[in-house]
């Protein structure tokens, strides 16, 4: 069972502002029944462009209903410009946090807000002030997620893997065709964040697998296969074991049979990390990938 906060339960049991605003100034509809969640947000403005009324209707799980409910409370009394500052993170924070797999519920709230603002300006026959929006081109067609939604989610939440992106935005959760694009977006965002001197989080992003490999073209394919296997073990078996203890591991570089890794979370500060690396990770890699692999820890 999901561990929902008291706030999520409170908003799920007693949702605020359910319904449709009469004679609305903007209506946003996102998601669909096929997606498993959908939200219609409508609002009314006063003469000073302040939101005087906001209502929602949601099809979805407990956290989707709670996210929508709290969003209506958060934007009430705000000008459109102020409301545009509300991020999915803000929604999740106001709810006392959401399970990671449920972060897409807060993203849906943010998207509905944007859709409603676009609708508002359309009604006025005006262009949308570009600072209000993060609209863009579709990347995941299964779940209708735009590139900009993915970019924002990566940058704001420091997402590192395609799996994270799926948890936050649903992108990549369907046919998987866009996984390659999502990886590109991850790379692009991380490059940008590093250039901008963003504080580097505990773990650096995992760039394209090929870039781990420092070898001639001939060997490249075999090496890439090893990198693929290591990445998979880190994502699944080994990663799960470490994540159970509140830590994680990532591949930094692979060269000459040496596997350079970085431990994160609890593992990074753990005095027994050497034992974890040599006794567990190295053994697993030798058993499942190749017998001559050596694991070396890279401290940040």
């Amino acid at each position: 069972m999901w561990k929902y906060s008291e706030e999520v339960y409170e908003h799920f049991m007693n949702p605020r502002n359910v319904g449709d605003v009469e004679e609305p100034d903007g209506v946003g509809e996102v998601g669909s029944m096929a997606c498993g969640d959908a939200l219609r947000l409508s609002f009314k403005l006063d003469e000073e462009d302040r939101i005087t009324e906001a209502k929602f209707r949601t099809f979805g799980c407990g956290s989707a209903i709670a996210s929508s409910s709290i969003l209506t409370e958060m934007i009430l009394g705000k000008t459109l410009e102020e409301a545009a500052q509300v991020t999915n993170e803000d929604i999740a924070r106001e709810l006392g946090g959401l399970p990671r797999e449920k972060m897409h519920c807060s993203v849906m709230g943010r998207e509905a807000l944007e859709a409603a603002m676009i609708d508002h300006y359309k009604r006025l026959g005006r262009g949308v002030p570009c600072n209000l929006l993060t609209q863009g081109i579709m990347v995941c067609h299964c779940y209708s997620v735009t590139r900009d939604t993915v970019r924002n989610a990566i940058m704001q939440n420091k997402l590192k893997s395609v799996e994270d992106v799926t948890n936050f935005t649903k992108a990549g959760g369907g046919c998987g065709d866009c996984h390659h694009d999502l990886k590109h977006l991850l790379d692009e965002c991380w490059e940008k964040m590093e250039q901008e001197g963003e504080e580097e989080p505990a773990g650096t992003p995992v760039p394209l697998e090929a870039s781990f490999v420092d070898t001639s073209d001939k060997e490249q394919q075999g090496q890439q296969e090893i990198v693929r296997q290591i990445t998979e073990l880190f994502a699944n078996d080994i990663g799960v074991a470490l994540r159970n203890d509140g830590g994680d591991i990532e591949l930094v570089r692979f060269r000459d049979n040496k596997v350079f890794v970085r431990l994160t979370g609890n593992c990074a500060a753990c005095l027994a990390s050497e034992a974890t690396l040599k006794g567990y990770v190295e053994e697993q890699l030798r058993e499942h990938v190749r017998a001559d692999l050596e694991v070396i820890e890279v401290k940040t």
Partner: peptide, 13 residues
Amino acid sequence: REITPFSEKRATF
């Protein structure tokens, strides 16, 4: 069903 946007009239967006 009071909360959902969908109904027989409009089954999905």
